[in-house]
Write a protein that binds this DNA or RNA. Structure first.
Lengths: 148, 148
DNA sequence: TATGGTAATGATAATCATTATCATTAACAG
DNA sequence: CTGTTAATGATAATGATTATCATTACCATA
């Protein structure tokens, strides 16, 4: 929990209390490269922290997304998944999603070309649809190395 | 229901029976440019077709997606939404999603540039991650003309 | 154009993910 | 240390979707 001190102070800016559930969830997600669901987080934390409530997981996840500590991801069917936004991982990235086993791979190549396309598209969208772009999302679906 | 004859025959290839619920759902979705949820479809059809069951809506939607008549879309929170795949709309398109009112706008500009980026990305992904790309999805989030 | 085999339907219950409620607990400012 | 009040955890409630199963109705065939 080396990061806890930094988290705590960053958190205070949002006028919230620093609690054990909050630290545990952030700690767990910061240590894995996996994209975990609320249930998976609950099951994992329950080992070291028996008695933690599911409600708390959901509430905390939602708070941590709002305050920019986590990303919430929506992968087709199944529950929402969450990933830690580290300063390095915060660098723009997208996902490769295996349609067979559901594995999610982070992908951050071709960002320059993507940036160019997105910029151009945004200009176009704003002009044609009068739509103010705030964010975008790109996903590739297919078969991972273990599934084909 | 001018299209019904064509639908019916296309459907038969999948060894399925052509029924009133199936025709009604396809008819409704082919006549609107909206992206409807199962509940919205149920509410609408119930007027002209009282007694239709919710189960049937879900089952039929899933079947129509499998057989390529419809696209299933996943827009953040809230229920899944469905759109008709007409031969013209089947042309590759993506969505602009308003983060305030939830409106979804179909968007099909810059397809050439996108195609180029995607092709290049696929090559890269295959080489680096040994991931066989089957499909992709691009979404822009922001504020529509009514919301800003 | 009847009819029987069977796929499809609709009512209902069940499941899964998530949110709401509320009494109890614990952060932390003073 | 202590009081306030935000956060927690147990529970119920909601919303979307899937499963079950007896009944209905497509449609191939005779």
């Amino acid at each position: 929990m080396v990061e806890a001190y930094k988290w705590r102070h960053r958190f205070r800016k949002h006028v919230s209390r620093w609690t054990l559930p909050r630290e545990s969830i952030l700690d767990l997600l910061s240590r894995t490269s996996k994209h975990l669901s609320a249930k998976e987080i609950y099951d994992d934390l329950s080992k070291a922290y028996p008695g933690i409530g599911q409600s708390t997981i959901y509430r905390t996840l939602s708070l941590l997304v709002q305050t920019g500590f986590l990303n919430k991801m929506d992968i087709g069917d199944g529950p929402k998944r969450y990933e830690y936004r580290s300063s390095s991982k915060m660098e723009h990235h997208h996902h490769l999603i295996c349609t067979k086993c559901g594995k999610i791979i982070d992908y951050s190549d071709f960002i320059d070309e993507e940036e160019k396309l997105v910029k151009e598209a945004e200009k176009n969208i704003t002009g044609k649809y009068n739509f103010k772009v705030q964010d975008h999302n790109i996903e590739f679906y297919g078969l991972c190395k273990d599934c084909h």
